[in-house]
């Protein structure tokens, strides 16, 4: 099980220009102005290094909110 708040804290750290309070579990993260390919790569590395889960770029592409992302990650654990 991924702790939502732990993931959210780490996820927020991937952004440098975005106010962290704008990023919640319901945020459609791909709509954030700062969203870019380096953040996608950072997210993949974060999942692998911190949560020991391999996530594909397609899974990120198919997730809308941070919550979706966590669900998608958890499906990789099964």
């Amino acid at each position: 099980m991924i702790k939502e708040n732990v993931f959210l804290d780490q996820f927020r750290l991937l952004f440098d220009e975005t106010d962290p309070s704008l990023i919640t579990l319901d945020t459609k993260f791909k709509d954030l102005e700062e969203w870019n390919s380096l953040i996608i790569l950072s997210l993949i590395v974060l999942c692998e290094d911190e949560f020991k889960i391999i996530i594909s770029p397609n899974q990120i592409q198919n997730s809308k909110t941070v919550c979706d992302l966590i669900e998608s990650l958890e499906s990789n654990l099964k």
């Binding site: 380096l38 790569l41 950072s42 993949i44 590395v45 974060l46 290094d49």
Partner: peptide
């Protein structure tokens, strides 16, 4: 390895 500088270990 593909790791952004910010996440290097």
């Amino acid at each position: 390895d593909y790791t952004p500088a910010k996440l290097i270990t």
